[in-house]
Each structure stands twice: as C-alpha cells, then as structure tokens.
Design a protein around this nucleic acid. Sequence first.
DNA 1: AGTGATTTTTTACAGATGTATGCGTTGTCT
DNA 2: AGACAACGCATACATCTGTAAAAAATCACT
Lengths: 333, 333
Amino acid sequence: MVREGQDESDAFATEVCWHYYVNGMTQGEIAKFLDTTRLRVNQAIQRAKSLGMVKVRIESPFVARVELQDRLRRQLGIERVIAAPARRDAYDYHGSVGAALAAVVTERLRTKAWRKIGVSWGMTLEAGIQKLPQLANPDVEIVSMLGGTMQGASFNSFSIASGFAAQLGASYSLLAAPIFLSEGVDRDLFLSQEIFADHFAKFEALDAAILTASDISPRSYLVANGLPEEFSPAAITEAGAIGDVLGRFLDEEGRTIDHPLDRRTIGVDLDVVERTPEKILAAAGPHKVEIIRAAARRGLIDTLITDDVTAELLVEPSEGRKTATLTAEQRAG
Amino acid sequence: MVREGQDESDAFATEVCWHYYVNGMTQGEIAKFLDTTRLRVNQAIQRAKSLGMVKVRIESPFVARVELQDRLRRQLGIERVIAAPARRDAYDYHGSVGAALAAVVTERLRTKAWRKIGVSWGMTLEAGIQKLPQLANPDVEIVSMLGGTMQGASFNSFSIASGFAAQLGASYSLLAAPIFLSEGVDRDLFLSQEIFADHFAKFEALDAAILTASDISPRSYLVANGLPEEFSPAAITEAGAIGDVLGRFLDEEGRTIDHPLDRRTIGVDLDVVERTPEKILAAAGPHKVEIIRAAARRGLIDTLITDDVTAELLVEPSEGRKTATLTAEQRAG
DNA sequence: AGTGATTTTTTACAGATGTATGCGTTGTCT
DNA sequence: AGACAACGCATACATCTGTAAAAAATCACT
C-alpha cells in the first residue's frame, strides 16, 4: 500500500474483525479469503481486542447484578457472591436473601453429597427456611453451631436447626445450651459433659456451614434477646467489636475481640469454622456492611448471599462504577 | 429457584456470558465455577447470542468502509470489493482507485504465480501505473487485451500495457491494431494475420485481467478519442448501451449490445474474459455506477476496485443503512 | 411397582483456536 | 561478498469449542 503501516494494519484488523465477528467466518476462512495466513488473522484479532477495537456488550436486565456480584466477589476475595434483587419499596433485609439462600441450599443438596450441615440462627436464616421447598435428605444431619436464647420475640432460636431439618427432610442435632453461660459457670467443666463433646466433634466434620452476621444494635436478634444483662452493647462496641458471627464478636479486621464475653460463649470456634469446606453466609442490610466485610476478611465466607442494595454498599466506593460495556480483551491471554 | 424458569435461565445466561466475554474465562472453567456442565454453558452462550443479548461492536475508523465493501460484495455477487477512501475535496475518480489497484496488483504478484496478465487501458489504469512500485517480474507478460487509439490527449493507449510491464519488470505484448476497424475492412481477414492469431491465443491463457469500465460520455477516454466518426455516442446509447468494458458496449444487464460497432472491435471477446481466473476491474465515479453494475452482472469482475463515494452509490438504496453495531449471532452456526 | 417416553448427563469426536518451534528469507554490517 | 541478526512464515501441537450419539436418570402412566 502507499499508505503508512499503522493505517494499513488497522484497516486489515478491522476487516478481519468484521468478517470474524459480524460475518461469523472462521479465522481459516478469513485467511484464505484475504490471501494471508491464519496466524496473521489470529494476531490481527488479538491486536484489535487488546487495542479495544472490539467491544462486547451484554444486554440483559441481569447485567448490573452479575457485574455487581463479580466485582464484590473479587473485592472480598471469596468464591461466590449472590446479590438477590431486593424490593426497594418494602425493604426488609430478609425476604430476598432468604429466597436466595433457599435456592442455593436446594441446588447444593441436589449435586453435592453433604452429610453434616452446620447452621447458625437468626432472622435471615429463619426467612430462608420459609422459602425452602420440602425435600427428602435422610442422610443429612443439621448441626446447630451455637447455643440458643432463653427468650425471644418472633421465633425460637432452637427452631432454626430443626426447621431446616424439617424442610430438608433431614435429622438434626441441637446444642442444648444457652449461647452465653451465666456468670461464674466454669466453661470447661460445662463443656466436659459427654453430650457436648459429641456435638463439638461434629463441628470438625461439617461439610457445609450456613452462617449469618449481625451488627451490634437492637436490630440484631442476638443483641436484643441473647446478650447477658451485664454486657451492654456499648461495652462490646467499646472493645472494638462491630458485629458478630455465630455469637463471636469481631473487629473490623475480622479478629475475635478479646473480651470476657467471648469466654462465656457456647458454640463452635471460628477457627474451626474457617476449616469447613463450604461456608455460606447470608446477610443483608446497610447496617451489616461492616460485619460482612469483617467476616470475609476472617475467611468465614465462601459464598456470600446478600441483596443488591447491600452489595452496592459493600463495593469500595473508590472503585468507580464501571459501565456494562467492557472491552473483551481478556480472550487474548 | 423460587423464581420462574425464564428469569432464571436468562440470569444464568447473563452470568455465563459475563464470565465468557468480560472475564475471558473458558467455557470449561465457567462450568466448573458455576457447578454445571460445559454443555450447559455452551448452550447458554448460544442462546444468549441468538437472543441478541451479546452485542459485538467494532470501533475503528475503517469500519464504515469495511462494511460498505462487504455489503457491495454480497450485492454484486463478486469475490472482493475494495473501496479506497477518496478525497472528497478534490475528487478525481482516479487517484485513490489507482493507488488501490497498484497495491492489489503488487500484493497479488508477491503471492500468486501469474504468468500472463491481460490489461485494458484508460485513465484509471494509467493512474494505477503511476502508483506502482518498481518491481522485477521477468516471468510475467503483460498482454494488451484490445487495440489502441490513433490519437489522444493525455497518454498513448499503447503505453498502458508497456507502462505496466515497465513498472512490474515484465515483458509485454501489444495488440498493434486500432481498437475499431475502419469501415469496409473485413474483420476476419484482418485477424487472420498470424501475429494476431498468436496474440488472441494468449487471451485464453491469461492468469489475470486488469479491466476498467467507462460510461458513454465525453469523460470516457474511449468515447472522446477512439470512437469512429460515423458512430455517435447517442447512437450507441440508442442501441441500449450504458457503457463499455474493453471497448465492448454493454446494456444494463451486462449483455453485449447488438450493434455494427461491435463487429468492428478489435480485442478479446468478453466471453473469453469471463473465463479468466482472476478479473480485477478498477473504476470509480458517479457516472460509472451503471456500467460497473452491468459488468458485475456479466461476470466480468472478481475484484472490484473503486472508491467509497462510488461504492456508496452502488449499494442498493433499498437496503437500508445498517449500523456498525450488529449482533454476533453468526458464531452459532 | 413396572414400563415406556422424555429429558438430562456423559462421552466422544471433529473442527477451530492459540502458541511454540524451527526454517527460510530479507536486510544489514563488516 | 559473506556472515550475522531480525523478521516473517509454515508446521506442529495443545487446548478449546460445538455437536452428535450413547447412556442414565427422571417422569408419566398403567
């Protein structure tokens, strides 16, 4: 050509991409058609992609959610994120997340050979039970991962494990103890009872754990109904806690806070939970953003189930909102 | 899922496409990641494409031209179209087309083992010679496909073949005869001369033909300089002709017109040209639109070299201008 | 429960794609 | 002119992709 190299090569790449993407020709066909080698065509496509000449856009109502999930997944460094679409007009923190949790558990049970599933408790998990279909999994055992509350407003904390078991057609194993021991009770002595030893041994053998997280506020079922009188929410916050997972209060970095309350908690140790093969944490609500981040940092989440409202709040504000139109240069490598 | 099937499957397809196109994951990786089979992922991508969910856009200054060429190529039913970018401020019909012709010929000579190249003549081909680099093709013979003019304004019609040969470093073979025999000369007798028989035999053995086309107007070098006095342009038009290729006047359908002039023309028969393996026709200008269409219909064009202005005029107005953003559903089949 | 029909899942295989290797050509420097 | 380096090209090969057929599972019906 009389024209200079850059133009010519761009024009060539343009024509190659046109045939490839628009006309659907194969690289070999294009090479034959343009009297060149397949290698050249292949390289032209790769160059065009890396130059951002080829733009792939996915048009679907689900794109925003998928993108959000993907970004959050990378940011939190966890395996999977599900951001269920929340009702923005009647936002309740639990409805959509519960449905998504039910769907995930159902799907997982269909394909995985889970035997023991550890469960936490709380309003989010209660919502999940409501959405579960009736299944038959006689080989599955639902293992309660922490003690229960002695009083409550809406549901019995022990009923979470049994409720899961009932819907899943599974057996269950409760931890028949208060979540927080009374003052003066010797923890080691209490737990030395044989029945507890058997139960704690199951924690090490869980195939999956269904968790939730709460902040420290009256909205937290645990704080509202379970906290011993001598521990005020303010005192726990003072100690650096921003919320709890399984009754264990964590600081911003996901570390268990050093506080007398922790030594009175009856339930699985978070270090044990970390070793569980599949950890599903379901939680939503603007007030839970910090504790979800902390739980992720602690390594307590493989699959995060939340809603799109919370997910939006979870993503780093620094990471500017990307458009759904992205370059597909990734195929190059 | 609690949601209905359509939504779920669309959401799934969206997520799959996201991973595939945006994250650049392989179908197998996505299947493993989403706990499903590669088949499902493959089908989801195909469904998304066929639903128009995936849009591929090529962003390049050359897109418009490439698209134009491709559309024209299909419409004319020829192998290749090159629409060189014309200078719209100083439009001359020949500059850009000549450069493109030179580029094509150079490229073809580099890769193809052409031995005999037939050439027409005219201002467009003259422009091509000007843009040809100096090459060395001692094994190539340039064969003039028609007789010459006895007078002219700008260039000698015989110099086209010799000019090509000089630039290409090839030998040449002229047809030393007038393009139109004088009245009363017996054509068969004239052509029975041995030297012409040899030359005409070469027409059957051409590897390629470099052609052009003109309308019937003073802008045509042939009409202006070559037409016998007894044939007025009006008379030829009257006979149905809209232009000529190699001195053969064609009607709209590309048929050689039945006219006394045709029986006095000295040059290759168009039926012979049709059998030439590679026919390159270079022509541009709004006035040449009709004759280019006719030449294509006649099967005289494998590669059309024109400019973008002419190409725009050549495409059927009925075929609405498509946008450069097209669905890439073609990969499905 | 048994049986047949329908649908999924698995498996296999034929292209298509992306990459590395070695060879030949071109151009350049001494 | 000869040697060397750089570049491009053909080949080969390891995935990846798309599709069809076989096997298995599920479902509907008797």
